[in-house]
Design a protein around this nucleic acid. Sequence first.
RNA 1: GACCUCAUCGUCUAGCCUGGUCAGGACUCAAGAUUUUCAUUCUUGCAACGCGGGUUCAAAUCCCGCUGGGGUCGCCA
Length: 443
Amino acid sequence: MVKVRFAPSPTGFLHIGGARTALFNYMYARSQQGSFVLRVEDTDRSRSREEYLNEITDSLHWLGLDWDEFYKQSDRFDLYREHAKRLLDSGAAYEDNGAVVLKMPRQEVKFFDLIRGEVVFDTSNFVQRDEAGNNLLDSEGRPVLKDEVLIKADGSPAYSFCCVVDDALTEITHVIRGEDHIPNTPKQILMYQALGFKAPKFAHIPMILNEEGGKMSKRTGAVAVSEYRAKGFLPEALVNYLMLLGWSPGGDQELMTLDSAIKKFSIKKINKSSAAFSMDKLRWINGQYVRQKSDQALADFVAPFLEKGGWIGKDYDRKKLEGIVKLYKTRMADIDEFLERTRYLFEDEFKAGEEVLKSANLSGECFSGLARVLEEAAPFNTAAVEARFREFADQRAMKMSDLVHPVRLILTGSDVGPGLFETMEVLGREKTVKRLKSAAEIS
RNA sequence: GACCUCAUCGUCUAGCCUGGUCAGGACUCAAGAUUUUCAUUCUUGCAACGCGGGUUCAAAUCCCGCUGGGGUCGCCA
């Protein structure tokens, strides 16, 4: 049975690249009816933090990547020491200042990478150098090879070794990880051999680059999954975007659910070259998912963000929110945008600034006339409001557009937005009339 | 520097394995249609096989070299 793992170290937030590694592992496991294990690599006790672990598991859950098994390396130190002892006894390793170190043999190490094909290393290149960067030479004048630390002097196990022991003991069949691990692979293969374990299959996936094609870092954009979550991206959209970074089902289809992607998934189809992250494309995909959502579901999604921003309380008008969401569904790619564009609907003390009023360029008399007419519109809905509005325009022989734009401007503070009458309905009679009146006063 | 690795529009990619297609799709951008504005939607357009050799009737596709990018060289993971 196929068994894969995602092995983050809780020394920071779940990185977008890590999420993609987890995603590929998850898709492979599910596509093969295999299992997906979450292994916490917390051997560095000083850098590992409980809150980071929580953040990572929260993010994974949010993305919908559930695991079948879970364990922490910090609970397994005895196990690693036990196997290190075996290596000591067999003579494959030796002690050095309290550390257990694997003797590096001089040989060629080959492995078949499921994505890249055969990769060959020669351990003769793993040389030790002095501080000046010169190779150290042995008595015969050959470069001294760099041996691998298995157990550190403080008794804690080293990364590579835990990784090998765990992968072997938990019977991981496929190690799917970032290509930054390629150079670790030959060393780990030597460990499998020394331990007498069968090595798993390896697949090294390409890295994600930032928009400029450089290394992903906080400086060049959001890197933590939690940041995307906070910005109001939909998890299914992020997942959809991430799977497309370095993988394609082969045809023209791009929008797909995790389940349908799993049906088409194959490691063979993962690309070899690194992919640059594109916020534009992520936003476009997110917009597609936003538009697919029902008004009810979208209102559910949006409500917590509005609550957090203090725009609505626990007892908010649900029907009204659904109405707002309906109007803005095609006008938002993410929550930040939604919040920005709908702010005027929630603010009580909204007042059109002088600039806005000036560009509205309509007489105060006209605003107050409209306010009076709309005050009587009953019920205060799109149809009734529009009828009154058109009547008003007719009476004064004004072109609708000459009236619509200034009014939108003073009602919303913006010259673009949803239909004016729909806007008025969700704004409500009270705010609409009040804003028209205050515009009339200032004009 | 050494070793490993990668290379199709600005970006994500299909095609490469099993040579022969106007090199296809998506994002972005531009233009048009629809819309009271904007957005959505639809239509159209711009835009790529890094370079140089080979093999072949024929190369994006196979081989070699170059160039360029990325990764690793920790008692971090």
